[in-house]
Amino acid sequence: MNLAIVVPCFNEQEVLGTTIDHLRELLNQLIAEGLVDPESTITFIDDGSKDKTWSMIETVARCDSSMHGIKLSRNRGHQNALIAGLMTVRGDAIISVDADLQDDLSAIRDMVLKYREGAEIVYGIRVDRRTDARFKRMSAEGYYRVLRLLGVDIVFNHADYRLMGYHAIEALKQYGEANVFLRGIIPQLGFKTENVYYRRAERFAGESKYPLKKMLALAWDGLTSFSSLPLRWITLLGFTVSMFSFAIGSWALIARIFFDGSVPGWASTVIPMYFLGGIQLLSLGIIGEYIAKIYTETKRRPRYIIEKMI
């Protein structure tokens, strides 16, 4: 099999040299064992880095015919950089892995073996989240459970470390959406799948390219791209609040007509008004998010632009 490994990179100069050495050693080992073709490649996708990442990629590509690089014209985000690699690189199977060396590279051999046994997609799944901070661990696992609750077909504790065969890649090319969330798209492709389990290590060098803000943005993209339940919940919430308001209004009317009384104080007026106002603003915000996604999709702008390939 001709194996292609794609590695999205963004400002990874501190760790990239070590990543290159580890991947080269792994690829040579797979070739020596006869598991992959000697023409197998490793391609680094530079997602608009501001440091020396691209110059390092150019240097290694000139010296090693198995190493290649794709430079995007500007930073487009991890998911789009990954899509650029998957759509551009050729091979019987493509493995995507991050450049930070947190994903156990030895799992690649297991993925290759699963593919040779007939799997078209092989997911790399974390055994646990011991290396994560408590907040990140709880929020990440909670997020996967929420997505499943909303009906999204997603692999628990799987990020973007996976193998995809030629047929799966060709099927993925039919998805032209601008709001990319590969963890939700890939399970929709079908095909035979297998899992490979590994332990995630601490980041080898540099800093995380997924701070809290980007993690929340990715989580929200995944939620709104694959489930319409929030919109249905708005309808249910509106119905519930309307019934509650109707009941309160009926109680006030009955108290005034039959018991010659009235609802005392301003709280009975102001609190429901604030409550309803907050519900309306929240509902409009959620609806606005879906409309914004429709707006983005209808423009059909390219997800990435390749500036240079080596």
Rank of each mutant, 00 (worst) to 15 (best):
D100R: 03
Q79P: 08
R62I: 06
D104W: 15
M67S: 03
S65K: 15
I45H: 01
I83M: 14
S73R: 09
A81Q: 11
V97E: 05
R74D: 13
R109W: 01
D104C: 01
I94K: 02
L72P: 10
A107V: 12
A99H: 08
D92P: 06
R74H: 09
A84C: 15
R74V: 04
G48V: 13
T43V: 14
G48W: 07
D46Q: 00
M67F: 13
R76D: 09
D37W: 05
S96A: 13
T88H: 11
N28I: 10
S106I: 05
D98A: 14
L27E: 04
S40G: 09
L72F: 11
A99E: 04
D46H: 09
S96I: 02
A32M: 01
L26M: 12
G77V: 09
S49T: 09
T41L: 08
A107K: 08
S73H: 06
H68Q: 09
I57R: 00
W54P: 14
R74E: 13
T59N: 13
D51L: 07
N75S: 06
F44T: 00
T41D: 03
I95P: 04
S49A: 05
L26Q: 05
T59A: 15
W54Y: 08
S49I: 11
D98I: 05
T43N: 07
I70G: 05
I83H: 08
L72R: 07
G85W: 11
R90P: 02
I31G: 01
F44G: 09
E33W: 07
D98Q: 14
D37A: 15
I83P: 01
V89P: 00
D103T: 12
F44R: 10
